[in-house]
Nucleic acid binder design. Structure first.
Lengths: 217, 217
DNA sequence: TGCTCAAATCAGGATTATCCCTATTTGTAT
DNA sequence: ATACAAATAGGGATAATCCTGATTTGAGCA
């Protein structure tokens, strides 16, 4: 009895490629494909597959919401997230939603096959890069709260980060906050250390992703 | 004599999938793969393939710049753009850069195979959705309503901007481009003057909006 | 052919920003 | 009462930035 799989990704050629790869495995069988979250849920309801390979970024209903729904309604159906992002928030949300695996799109095919057999076996499979994030998060987490990257920054640090990401100089920020430039420097250094970022370009992108500033201007 | 192809995409599993699909075609042969623009150029120089399947969004040197370089240095090597975007600006720039084909990632595999044979035959292949854009543009033949990074910045400046927005230091960029740090500084200064931007945060946002770099990482 | 101009390259020197380390004060939770 | 994180800030070394000026190369054109 082979493992029955539904592929969900909004890019057809990627689905085709994955199908072509998976067809080579004797114990794996693609039974359907979907290009958005809603379609995926319909197919799962109809076919109850063993595994869903789920892209995160899909139009309409995204992969995270679809996974949440499937995990709730069909606990036996395992979901493996296939994502371009190693962004912590996506990982966190996807795992909270009930995914049994999380793979990055730059992984090798062997990893996909391995992950499928792993989740069918009732275990969790994560890409190595993802494991790092999850472990890191676990180490930092207290029994009570599950701190996100966002909550690791203090109010003052977020304030400074926002101003930095809006393009202000250290001096301007110091004047605006009525502190010395050295203080602003210290805040920035702590922010960067906490986020493991060492340049303004990456820091700016982080701030945009976190909604602290917009892409405009 | 089969068609010799180089695959360039920064996601390994996508390359694997495409390879798996293309291997089924008797007249098509994958001779190498690359995960960024610079590597692609090196491989083209070394192997002179018939066709390069080129992802647009790659780190370091992006697909548009790589295509421009290849089309100029190796006119016999055909490039097919494989993109998630149907954004007019990407299409325009990719075709201007010298691409012989433009496919959307949600196309069917048959289209990819067809496009390869079409460009080898010396013709141009466009996804239907792309054809609409190009035809629409041709009919109206209006100049671009708003200038993009491609009209205001030189090739070298765009290259530097992309690296800056990816978080590289001046020194790293100088080393990568085999020029002095002073040269990189000059490019950056010119970029900022042209765009009327005076800080890295705003410059990074600009690069993201223009598609030179992604928000991730 | 010679001219012009933009693009790409780089230097010197002055000014700022950043990095790394250390330290004090203050509020808060136990 | 104490322990700890947050906010503040300085000193000194290193690196980036700003401003000015200069050379080379190639493309376009009278």
């Amino acid at each position: 009895m082979s493992i029955r799989i539904i592929l969900a990704d909004d890019h057809k050629i990627i689905r085709d490629g994955l199908r072509s790869l998976l067809e080579k495995e004797d114990d794996i069988q693609i039974i359907a494909q979907a290009d958005d979250g809603r379609k995926t849920i319909e197919l799962v309801t109809e076919l109850t597959p063993d595994v869903v390979i789920m892209d995160i970024g899909m139009p309409g209903l995204n992969g995270i919401e679809a996974t949440r729904h499937i995990a709730h309604e069909f606990p036996k159906v395992k979901t493996i997230a296939l994502s371009m992002h190693s962004d912590k928030r996506f990982v966190t949300e996807m795992l909270k939603a009930g995914a049994s695996g999380y793979l990055l799109k730059n992984c090798a095919f062997e990893e996909l096959a391995t992950s499928i057999r792993t989740v069918v076996d009732g275990k969790t499979y994560l890409s190595p890069a993802i494991t790092d994030i999850v472990v890191d998060n676990y180490i930092r987490s207290t029994p009570d709260t599950q701190p996100t990257v966002y909550s690791t920054l203090t109010n003052r640090e977020r304030e400074v980060l926002q101003l930095l990401a809006e393009g202000r100089t250290t001096k301007q920020i110091a004047i605006q906050l009525y502190v010395s430039t050295k203080t602003v420097e210290t805040h920035r250094a702590k922010i960067m250390k906490k986020l493991d970022i060492d340049n303004m370009a990456t820091l700016t992108k982080y701030a945009v992703r976190e909604g602290l500033t917009s892409l405009e201007s």
